[in-house]
Amino acid sequence: MNIFRLLGDLSHLLAVIILLLKIWKTRSCAGISGRSQILFAAVYTARYLDLVTSYISAYNTVMKIVFLVASYGTLYLMFLKFKATYDHNHDTFRIEFLVLPCVILALLINHDFSALEILWTFSIYLESVAILPQLFMVSKTGEAESITSHYLFALGTYRGLYLFNWIYRYYAEDHYDLIAIIAGIVQTVLYCDFFYLYITKVLKGKKLQLPA
């Protein structure tokens, strides 16, 4: 565990908490892509199946459970409890265009052709693009609430910090995982445009509004 990994995980945790609190406090999931949230639930489920097969540390186990519970909790709030506030007219990204290529890629490029390993690989590929329906929704409506922007910033920062963690581990521990690294780079790059808008607008107290 190094500082980049810890900050990355905390940023990830913060993102998940911001999202749950936003929905809970405002009693609304307006502006949030249910499709992205479905993809994230699939990501955590596929990746954290190893909860039952391998023990790393209490920290890992607790965090995995938190992400799983938070993710299904978010789905519950969006699709059941506050279903009426779900903005499905603007949430139209076709997720099969993301899921199917990730399945095929996981079957072709993986470390080991075993069920758990392929599911892990699939989750890494899917996570890298899972935010696209949300970004598509923001671009479609042309704006995002500040709280949604904070959520996206924390979520984007998390994998960015993991990139520094992987650079550190390469030198300090001689450890690297090309699948995670390349997917992590893709994931972080997808947020770049949003990061720019966040820093130039939201941090100056303005609403995130895309140029017309």
Binding site: H12, D50, I56, H111, D112, L178
Partner: peptide
């Protein structure tokens, strides 16, 4: 050490 020898990250 690369890849598959136990994924110890989240």
């Amino acid at each position: 050490r690369t890849g598959c020898e136990g994924h110890d990250e989240l």
